[in-house]
Design a protein around this nucleic acid. Structure first.
Length: 249
DNA sequence: AAGGCAAGCAACCGCCTCTCG
DNA sequence: CCGAGAGGCGGTTGCTTGCCT
């Protein structure tokens, strides 16, 4: 199911992400956001290319990401949107909070494509049911509203706003499914990261970065939380409320 | 029990678009 | 306007797993 870890010609890791890599990436983005995907792995202490980091974050580590267990409703939305938009996975993903374009694409290829083909052939026998179509549209707009309110909530939290590009970070009170995804996210942080003390203490963030097999001594400064502050004009130290650091976790 | 095969899915690749100097 | 760099997207690959023979 997963690619085995290996290295490319530049010595960068490829294949499966290890729990350690996940931990580093999530900790870094949670703190600083994705200010520059290509530079990020260097400062996060990851021997990965930026694109790989982005993909991993967007599809797996991002908060509130839902995995598996597609509801009938979601399937219908995907089928309907695909009929309208074609293979515009990112556009379809906009209508399904918590689902990534990659996951939707996979789900389409593995199960919905067959259903779509079946429906197509069935459709030639029966006329389209406009009633059911309007039901789907209604459901879609309700999902979109949820999404929009989530986005509004995002604006109320600086950290959340930084971390997410277009997404559904803020916890929504909600269905058991959404709760389970939040649980999943918390699991990631608790199982992989432990508590803040564990992350920020010890040598984890103070060890010199090893990039492409070389130690990078121009590593950026360590912030009050023990994370590595990116040398970005967009991310000045004073941008963050470090006093709030522990509260955030 | 063992080998073959298909399904599922994480991740890679390469192209396109956007932004900025 | 143009070129370079970065982000985003869709197609594809390849590994694992589970089922079937």
């Amino acid at each position: 199911m997963v690619r085995t870890p290996c290295r490319d010609e530049n010595g960068r890791n490829k294949g499966t992400w290890t729990p350690e890599e996940d931990r580093k990436l999530a900790a870094y983005i949670t703190k600083y956001g994705s200010w520059n995907w290509r530079q990020l792995p260097k400062y996060a202490g990851l021997a990965r290319c930026g694109k790989s980091c982005r993909l991993r974050w967007m599809n797996y580590l991002r908060p509130n990401v839902k995995r598996g267990n597609y509801t009938k409703e979601e399937d219908e939305i995907i089928l309907n949107l695909h009929a309208q938009l074609g293979n515009k996975w990112s556009a379809i993903a906009v209508h399904l909070p918590g689902r990534s374009d990659n996951e939707i694409k996979n789900h389409w290829h593995t199960s919905l494509k067959k259903r779509a083909n079946y429906n197509l052939s069935e459709g030639s026998k029966k006329c389209n049911n406009k009633k059911s179509e309007s039901n789907i549209t209604k459901r879609m707009s309700s999902v979109e509203n949820q999404n929009a309110s989530a986005t509004n909530n995002n604006n109320n939290n600086m950290h959340e706003h930084i971390v997410l590009e277009s997404s559904e970070w803020s916890p929504k009170e909600s269905s058991s499914e959404e709760l389970s995804s939040i649980d999943y996210q918390q699991d990631i942080f608790h199982e992989e990261f432990g508590n803040l003390e564990e992350i920020t203490s010890g040598s984890f963030w103070t060890e010199p970065f090893e990039v492409d097999g070389k130690i990078d001594f121009v590593a950026p400064s360590i912030d009050y939380c023990g994370l590595v502050c990116p040398p970005s004009p967009f991310m000045p130290h004073e941008f963050f409320d470090f006093d709030d650091c522990n509260n955030y976790w």
